[in-house]
Design a protein around this nucleic acid. Sequence first.
DNA 1: CTTGACCTTAGTGTGTACTCTAAGGTTTAT
DNA 2: ATAAACCTTAGAGTACACACTAAGGTCAAG
Lengths: 137, 137
Amino acid sequence: MKIGEVAAQLSVSTDTLRYYEKHGLLMPSRRTEAGYRDYSLSDLKQMRFILRAKDVGFSLTEIKELLAIKLYKHQHSCHEVKSLTIQKRDLVAQRVAELTRFHQSLSVLAEKCCGGEELADNCSILTTLEDIDGLTQ
Amino acid sequence: MKIGEVAAQLSVSTDTLRYYEKHGLLMPSRRTEAGYRDYSLSDLKQMRFILRAKDVGFSLTEIKELLAIKLYKHQHSCHEVKSLTIQKRDLVAQRVAELTRFHQSLSVLAEKCCGGEELADNCSILTTLEDIDGLTQ
DNA sequence: CTTGACCTTAGTGTGTACTCTAAGGTTTAT
DNA sequence: ATAAACCTTAGAGTACACACTAAGGTCAAG
């Protein structure tokens, strides 16, 4: 399959496929005489793997690690794979916690403000942001 | 106050202060004869505002908007300020939802895997990532 | 045989928030 | 007078994941 067909079938851009190739995530098995990329079914399968891994939140760098393990499965243990997954999960959990704090603070700010057409001269959002410890107390 | 003193007092780098200036967030009121930045107390106050706004999750671009409103409070309404806050809160909520889905998927993956020293030949994380709909079903 | 759709490469641009570097000037203490 | 500690600028580098561009080659249909 040519790059355009793969792109259409998987709903990605040809740029993305070339980008992944450049970064060692997906090399098409062969090239045509004219130098066009020629993707095999197994290439397609690998691209689906990449997209699914992205879907669950792995970065391209992490996916590259997963692919390396996948390629030589018998040289790696389940422990390694699970470890990567847990690490990522914990990182995501941290980020969720941080964003949840943001959300909480923004909610507090929003509740304090009347939100009316009054001039913002005494807007409680603005004053709270000026005021030390305005959100934590 | 010189840039180094401000930086030390607010625990930021001098680079950050220069960066904020370059991007229109904080202009020191004056310069010394030698061209050194000379920050006033009001500049310090504004920097604290910026840092607090960052703490609650506003981006520098959004903080710039807030500062513009703050500077001409009587030309803006509480509605505008609250609107920015709510918008940001909702954006954060979306991101939290996305990351929570990631977290959920990663947890499912992790639970499926034994995590032992077995070779990864049949690792369920790897096979699930290959398998269409493996996570949503 | 030419038009249009496709492909190639290398390289640049995007957004976010800095961080670092080079090459130099200033201030303060000794 | 000189060294250390500070300051200045412009510009490059970092991470992430692409998107876009230019300049050109290839392929299928009419």
